[in-house]
Amino acid sequence: MAGRQLNVLFTLDHARTQWYHFTAIVIAGMGFFTDAYDLFCISLVTKLLGRIYYTDLSKPDPGTLPPNVAAAVNGVALCGTLAGQLFFGWLGDKLGRKSVYGFTLILMVLCSVASGLSFGNTPKGVISTLCFFRF
Score class of each variant (00 low, 15 high):
Met108Glu: 00
Thr46Trp: 00
Gly92Gln: 11
Leu91Asp: 12
Cys111Tyr: 02
Ala28Thr: 10
Lys59Thr: 15
Ala28Leu: 03
Tyr53Arg: 02
Leu65Gly: 02
Gly75Leu: 00
Gly116Gln: 02
Thr23Tyr: 09
Leu65Ile: 13
Arg4Met: 15
Ser43His: 11
Leu39Ser: 06
Thr55Lys: 14
Leu82Asp: 00
Val109Ile: 01
Thr17Asp: 04
Leu49Arg: 01
Phe33Tyr: 03
Thr17Lys: 03
Ile106Val: 09
Arg16Gly: 07
Val26Gly: 06
Asp56Trp: 00
Val113Met: 00
Ala24Trp: 00
Thr34Gly: 03
Val45Arg: 00
Gly75His: 01
Asn74Val: 13
Leu130His: 02
Tyr54Glu: 13
Gln85Asp: 10
Arg134Cys: 09
Val76Ser: 02
Thr81Ala: 06
Thr34Pro: 06
Gly89Phe: 12
Thr129Pro: 09
Lys124Asp: 13
Val69Gln: 08
Leu130Cys: 09
Gly31Thr: 06
Val73Gln: 02
Leu39Glu: 10
Asp35Arg: 04
Arg97Ser: 15
Thr104Leu: 11
Phe33Pro: 04
Lys98His: 10
Gly125Gln: 07
Tyr53Trp: 08
Gly63Asn: 07
Ile25Gln: 09
Val73Arg: 05
Thr55Cys: 08
Gly31Tyr: 04
Val76Ile: 06
Thr17Val: 14
Pro60Ile: 11
Leu12His: 12
Val109Phe: 06
Ala15Arg: 03
Leu48Trp: 13
Ser43Cys: 11
Ile27Phe: 03
Phe133Leu: 08
Ala77Ile: 05
Tyr20His: 11
Tyr53Met: 04
Phe119Arg: 04
Lys98Cys: 05
Leu105Ser: 07
Leu6Ser: 14
Gly80Arg: 00
Val100His: 07
Ile106Trp: 08
Cys111Ala: 05
Ser99Glu: 15
Phe40Ser: 10
Lys59Tyr: 15
Ile106Ser: 03
Gly92Asp: 15
Leu105Trp: 03
Cys41Lys: 15
Phe132His: 02
Ala83Gln: 02
Asp61Gly: 07
Asp61Glu: 12
Phe133Val: 03
